[in-house]
């Protein structure tokens, strides 16, 4: 009776501590230890060995390619995300929910299948393969294929973040601007963009993290040519399979660093601007 009177809707302190302990223990074993082990393994033979692995010519080529792929695919999908959310949030039209479902499609496709579809399209036996061959152009086992697979994989990120945000904000501000004589672009740059900038940054951040870290889809289309079509995650795989563990973890530690920077920036955005993230995210 006494317990109910004091705190009817919480657990006893002992239960509470037990649950917190269980949750933190689970997170420690499944998330924190793997993260720490990346850095520990990378530095196992000292800083010099670490530095040598990171500055190796093949590693540098992989870093350059990863940056290039992200530099192409993230802006493209950002433009798409802004355009799609403008159309979806500011206008009423039939089939809107179908369009939103189609935008989400790449999230529900296995990364390997995401690579496979581009092989079926552009590969040697693919639909457009003979035509590409006749024009001496390569897509698969070359950089264009890697970019295409990455664009497919990261397709929904910005749109998914912006659509609910812009729907919530409605269109009153834009209508006021237009009725006061602003042009469409002026309205977008001076009214819409300031309203959505933090959500946009959030979407770009997550899009970039995935673009730089994608493995399965890129692995299918890349051909693993050292120094040419190896992105950082693929380089990690090659080094690991060659038993160069320090090398593999050294390059992996750069990606883990990127992940930590992404998480910190994401959390800051969430706390300061109270952004909520959409449920589905891969």
């Amino acid at each position: 009776m006494n317990r109910i009177a004091t705190s009817p809707v919480t657990e006893r302190p002992a239960t509470r501590r037990l649950l917190i302990g269980l949750a933190l223990g689970f997170l420690l074993f499944f998330l924190v230890l793997p993260l720490i082990s990346v850095f520990a393994e990378a530095l196992r033979h000292g800083v010099a060995a670490y530095w040598a692995s990171v500055t190796d010519p093949d590693a540098r080529a992989a870093i350059r390619l990863t940056l290039l792929v992200a530099a192409i695919s993230v802006p493209l999908n950002t433009m798409f995300g802004v355009a799609a959310s403008w159309a979806i949030a500011k206008f009423d039209f039939r089939g809107k929910s179908v369009l939103i479902a189609l935008i989400d499609l790449p999230f529900s496709v296995s990364p390997v299948v995401s690579g496979l579809i581009f092989v079926l399209l552009f590969g040697a036996q693919g639909l457009l393969g003979p035509w590409l061959m006749a024009h001496d152009a390569r897509v698969i086992f070359a950089v264009p294929g890697i970019v295409l697979a990455t664009v497919f994989i990261t397709f929904p990120f910005v749109a998914r973040e912006l659509i609910p945000l812009m729907q919530e904000q409605g269109k009153d501000d834009e209508e006021a601007a237009v009725s006061l004589g602003a042009s469409g672009w002026q309205t977008f740059w001076h009214v819409t963009l300031p309203n959505i900038r933090w959500g946009l940054l959030y979407g770009v951040l997550m899009c970039n993290a995935r673009a730089m870290g994608e493995f399965g889809a890129v692995s299918v289309v890349s051909g693993h040519i050292r120094g040419e079509t190896n992105t950082m995650p693929l380089h990690v795989e090659i080094l690991y399979n060659e038993y160069d563990f320090v090398g593999a973890f050294a390059v992996a530690s750069l990606l883990a660093g990127l992940a930590m920077v992404t998480l910190i920036a994401k959390s800051v955005l969430e706390w300061r601007f109270e952004l909520h993230q959409p449920g589905a995210r891969s």
Partner: peptide, 8 residues
């Protein structure tokens, strides 16, 4: 897990 590349 959303931010860390799967290969890592």
């Amino acid at each position: 897990p959303f931010a860390l590349p799967t290969a890592v």
